[in-house]
Design a protein around this nucleic acid. Structure first.
Lengths: 270, 270
DNA sequence: TTGCTCCTCACGTCACGTGAGGTGGC
DNA sequence: TTGCTCCTCACGTCACGTGAGGTGGC
């Protein structure tokens, strides 16, 4: 017979661990002194304990160890197979994290500070009242004037139709052969009843996987955010499958530093 | 300004998470209503929150995120490098676990049940009073008679010298050209003052890395335990660097099922 | 008799999830 | 006025480590 300390020393664990296993019913002492509460173990329990510790060191939870302890070998086999799958998944997840850490460090080397702002998510479902206009190209110098010219009018016409405009959303199509870009300018309208008119279309943006970055401040600098986002996407092993969406989360004035625009680029695994 | 629910939706986290970050001082609302306690966030805090979540998803603890939040970029860089090292270590550890799971599953296929009993550890420091005898080979049929013949006498002579014998320990040397094996038969004597005599030597076994398995029952079957242990060692990428040690943890009678003998094989990475 | 071992609570860890019980805003 | 949101506790999670406070055995 062994005292708790002797068994602990043989197995190189703490007495506290053995008390814990006793409490869980995982390894109950062969005898317990009724007066003093002293635990007494048999030597064959060292073998039991070793099995418990071996499974524990494989990362198996104590509840699952208890579950296979008195079960047929089949159970043990199944549990080990499960653990194999879990471990493979954990390794994958950590390797993915490792890749992302490397990407952030690369971005830091280049002085880019935004890589940590990028989020991959599914876009929110959006119902939009929008107009289509053609710009002579991308970039704020081409798009900006379009906004100034058409957005106030759109807002006014929605109000006239008793529709509360929500957030402002712009999205783009690929340029045609001459470089002209079809731009959709719209406001979220939720589920308010509205069918559009001969100029205003009502559309739902498909819910897709997007990489998203936040742009703050004047829209003139939005191409920096855009460039950083594209770089992040390439480094992360995605490819862009659609043109960008820009969601204006907050807008004070054209040059206000409190402006916040979310830039979304639909992506897929490269 | 955003309510807690709005910010939570934008960032796809729970309000509870935001309250938690508030409590930790990690992301404190721009305003808190003094009467109702309602939290109000500014939109620029969404960018802060995204950075926090990005680091969290890399497995960085919230305390460390807080530590780099207002620190110079150098801190962030250092923290990410540290995380790189930690992640690599975690992956290594999980891959090692994966290998061991595979070894156990293999052993189960072959019907061996003991692989989970094997432990790698450093041997305990042992001071031994022992005699050297020559056996005509390994195996219980060669070693057993030696035990029967010499062990009782050794015990008696130690008692006569006022030395309390501890656990019985046998260890072996490599066989010579004719297959003769030098066997050391001894008892642990701790630090009791004793220098031996012309037959009994006092020795300290070097503390080394060993693979250890427990044998239960009659010593006749100890070769099964031995075989399983050797197989485990090979499958696990170790090699045997010295002959075995056998430590008798419990001994009732020659054929008692409560006998427990620990078999240790000194190992090194293959 | 003095150390050493043993005992039973019970808090702390990490990042929240999940009620309970109650109130404020549209 | 009714739902929806928000609030503050406070327990539970996982496998013990770490005291606190006290007693038993050599």
């Amino acid at each position: 017979m062994l005292s708790i300390g002797e068994l602990a020393r043989l197995a190189q664990v703490s007495p506290r661990t053995l008390r814990h296993y006793d409490q869980l019913g995982l390894l109950v002492p062969a005898q317990v002194d009724e007066v003093t509460g002293y635990r007494r173990y048999e030597l064959r329990q060292l073998a039991e304990l070793r099995r418990i510790l071996a499974l524990r060191d494989l990362g198996v939870g104590l509840d699952r160890i208890a579950a296979v302890a008195d079960a047929p070998v089949e159970e043990l086999r199944g549990m080990l197979r499960l653990r194999e799958v879990e471990l493979a998944a954990a390794i994958d997840a950590d390797q993915e994290r490792l890749r992302r850490v490397a990407i952030h460090l690369d971005a830091l080397e280049r002085g880019e500070l935004m890589s940590l702002d990028v989020v991959v998510k599914r876009s929110d479902p959006v119902r939009l009242a929008s107009i289509d206009r053609v710009a002579p190209g991308y970039g704020n110098e081409n798009i900006g004037p379009l906004f100034d010219e058409h957005v106030p009018g759109l807002r006014a016409r929605l109000a006239a139709a008793d529709v509360q405009p929500g957030r402002f959303v712009a999205h783009y199509e690929w340029p045609d052969d001459e470089g002209n870009v079809l731009v959709h300018l719209g406001f979220e309208i939720g589920e308010q009843p509205f069918d559009g008119d001969d100029d205003i279309a009502v559309e739902r943006l498909p819910v897709v996987e997007v990489a998203s970055a936040l742009h703050r401040g004047a829209p003139v600098d939005i191409s920096d955010t855009f460039t950083g986002l594209v770089r992040w996407i390439e480094a992360s092993g995605y490819r862009i499958v659609e043109r960008s969406r820009e969601i204006t989360l907050e807008w004070a004035a054209d040059d206000s530093p409190t402006n916040v625009i979310e830039v979304q680029l639909p992506i897929a695994a490269a």
